[in-house]
Design a protein around this nucleic acid. Structure first.
Length: 448
RNA sequence: CGGGGCAUAGCUCAGCCUGGUAGAGCACCUGCUUUGGGAGCAGGGGGUCUGGAGUUCGAAUCCCCAUGCCCCGACCA
């Protein structure tokens, strides 16, 4: 992609409505534009990041054996009357009436929709276990949206729902998602820590929030330092195996958000030098809720003995659009965003310091074509901007690698390669620069 | 929903108190000079001053009513 063809409305100054750094940087980098409170348009740069995150989430759901569906964003009120939540949900639910005076709503979540699909499609225990997920736009009419996409009213979310015959089987389903989440967040370049969460009326130990540490996190969190270095299950993990050892390893050490924090236990169980207390952002939440929806909605199958059994369900959410902001919160500096390679909108920026200079243009075009052929997402800055402006923009939008091509260097067959992280610069031949960034990027892509 | 604040050019803001027909910086367009870490000079385009209703000869400015957005709180993927 060439910058002169792309749409990248960057702002030099920070719009005053943005409070936290991710919101400020997303606006300045031309990733989003606010349309109404908590509702945003995704501009090309932001959309590229969103899509990359979405694809990694999808990839790991599929790996764990979940199956994707897509459902309507507009749902029928009748469906929600079945579960009893139409009345219970409150003003956060955006209610709509159509021309026939039928009650509709813009889905804030998908338990009802998915349960109704599942119950009509599965009648035998032989069809279990199953896990269906969707990645869709949801709407919650929050009293006070804020922090940009971190807490918008409209948001892209992945919700998975597991269906099992027994609680034991449901536990195994839960563990599969637990492992999938460890891998998902690691692949996004994040270190997410599963923390014990409130299970609500159901009780038990099957509810975890996945938290990433960031200064601007919404809640205070406490955990054992070892969890910051926990082992990520490898790509060849067999999801048919017993995953208890992995989950046990991750849940045996203290980790809790402020709601669940027990200061005495924390002191007793965690040595002083291993105590981490920080602020955290919730990027995922998984929980087992038994028959909360399957019971009222009649989601049952016939068991081996011919008796009808109400299914045990769990739900597993990832805030996809929120993750865009969360990653920025966790990865930025004074110059702007620092994208982890797997989610970077472009992996390499080729900066043409003198667009219009024949030799410089030729080197840039060659790099562009060969990077693209190598499967690298490349953006060539072929604008007439001055050098300083180009550097500042690429730094702002956080492209992991820059190849700087100028007329002086071209004469001596040299370009400069610069890494966004650390800012190291190295001069080398264009050939070497190409090989270098391709190697670095391929390495960064297969971290887990 | 309670409390507070703001609304003037794409962005950041001045002008409002004390009414007289709209400004700056950045961005944008033209030209010249420049060109390796957000250049300089000259010229130029762009505004229903959030909306409505008042007071007045005259309203961005004063009065009233709406609306939108932001912040604090309760709520929250």
């Amino acid at each position: 992609m060439y910058l002169t063809r792309f749409f990248l409305p960057v702002l030099r100054e920070t719009p005053k409505e943005a409070e936290i750094v991710s919101h400020q940087l997303m606006l300045r980098a031309g990733m989003i534009k606010q349309s109404a409170a908590g509702i945003y348009s995704w501009l090309p740069l932001g959309l590229k990041v969103l899509k990359k995150i979405e694809q990694i989430v999808r990839d790991e759901q599929n790996r764990a054996g979940a199956v994707e569906v897509m459902m309507p964003t507009i749902q029928s009120a009748d469906l929600w009357r079945e579960s009893g939540r139409y009345e219970a949900y409150g003003k956060e639910m955006l209610r709509i009436t159509d021309r026939q005076e039928r009650d509709l709503l813009f889905g804030p979540t998908a338990e009802e929709a998915i349960t109704s699909i599942f119950r009509d499609g599965v009648k035998s225990y032989k069809d279990l276990p199953k896990n269906l997920y969707n990645i869709q736009w949801k709407f919650r009419d929050e009293i006070r949206p804020r922090f940009g996409v971190m807490r918008g009213r409209e948001f892209l979310m992945k919700d998975a729902y597991s269906f099992d015959l027994t609680k034991e089987a449901a536990r195994a389903s839960y563990q599969r998602m637990f492992v999938a989440y460890l891998r998902t967040f690691a692949r996004l370049g994040l270190r997410a820590i599963p923390m014990k969460a409130d299970t609500g009326p159901i009780g038990g130990d099957l509810s975890h929030e996945f938290i990433i540490l960031a200064e601007t996190g919404e809640s205070e969190v406490f955990c054992h330092r070892d969890l910051l270095e926990g082992a990520i299950p490898s790509a060849d993990t067999n999801f048919e195996d017993d995953l208890s050892p992995i989950m046990d390893a991750w849940t045996s050490k203290y980790a809790a958000t402020e709601d669940m924090h027990d200061a005495d236990r924390f002191k007793k169980e965690v040595p002083e030098d291993a105590r981490v207390s920080a602020r955290g952002i919730e990027v995922g939440h998984i929980f087992f809720f038994g028959t909360k929806y399957s019971e009222p909605m009649g989601c049952r199958v016939q068991g081996p003995d011919g008796q009808m059994v109400t299914l045990q369900m769990g739900s597993y959410g990832v805030g996809v659009s929120r993750l865009v902001g969360a990653i920025i919160e966790a990865s930025h500096d004074d110059g702007g965003i620092i994208w982890p390679v797997p989610v970077a909108p472009f992996e390499v920026a080729v900066i043409n310091l003198k667009a219009g200079d024949e030799a410089t243009d030729a080197v840039c075009a060659d790099l562009h074509d060969r990077l693209q052929a190598a499967g690298i997402d490349v953006l060539v800055d072929d604008s007439n901007e001055r050098a300083g402006g180009k550097f500042a923009t690429m730094e702002l939008i956080g492209i992991p690698y820059q190849i700087v091509v100028g007329p002086k260097g071209v004469k001596s067959n040299e370009v400069e390669v610069k890494a966004r992280i650390g800012g190291d610069r190295e001069t080398m031949a264009p050939e070497a620069a190409l090989a270098h960034v391709v190697e670095e990027i391929n390495r960064a892509r297969v971290l887990v």
